[in-house]
Design a protein around this nucleic acid. Structure first.
Length: 150
DNA sequence: GCCAACGTTGGC
DNA sequence: GCCAACGTTGGC
């Protein structure tokens, strides 16, 4: 069992949207580090759902991986903003996973709280702030989850 | 809206 | 393979 953090802009897709939909395709990741992390995901892995570009930014809840990495079809859709003309069907460049809703935190865990919490100072979120799909240690996951209970 | 950080592209 | 130019992310 692995733990991850995935970022989404709530204006585009929020934890409320995931709660409503039940599950979603995580399409549109166009960064190699983030893609490689998605390819390491296993069924049942738990994901901290992070709201980026939000006021305030922070972890809003938990999701679970229900489908492991498979080619993101948007890479071949000429009308999609995720279209990648260099990606071929024989060698798909971009992957996505499916995740399902697990829980919404009673309280958002804001980024500034994460930065100020002992045990979370080495989170990738803090160290490499731009990576949109990143690993989280079991300890970090447990601390964030506890903070989310309010 | 600004801009620092940083990932990607492409000329050489 | 280097690195300057460029584009994007995301906190503020």
């Amino acid at each position: 069992m692995n733990y991850w953090l995935m970022k989404s802009e709530p204006d585009v897709y929020s934890i409320d949207d995931l709660a409503r939909d039940g599950s979603t395709h995580w399409e549109g990741v166009r960064n190699y580090s983030a893609r490689n992390n998605m390819r390491k995901m296993e069924l049942g892995d738990l994901v901290l759902f992070y709201h980026s570009n939000a006021k305030p930014p922070g972890v809003a809840g938990i999701a679970r991986v229900v489908k492991t990495a498979y080619p993101d079809p948007h890479q071949w859709d000429r009308n999609s903003k995720y279209h990648d003309p260099k990606s071929t069907k024989d060698d798909p460049r971009w992957s996505m996973v499916d995740v399902e809703f697990v829980e919404q935190f009673a309280e958002l865990v804001p980024l500034d709280r994460i930065k100020a919490t002992m045990g979370l100072e080495n989170m990738v979120l803090v160290k490499r702030s731009r990576l949109s799909v990143q690993p989280v240690t079991p300890q970090e996951f447990a601390i964030v989850k506890r903070l989310g209970k309010g």
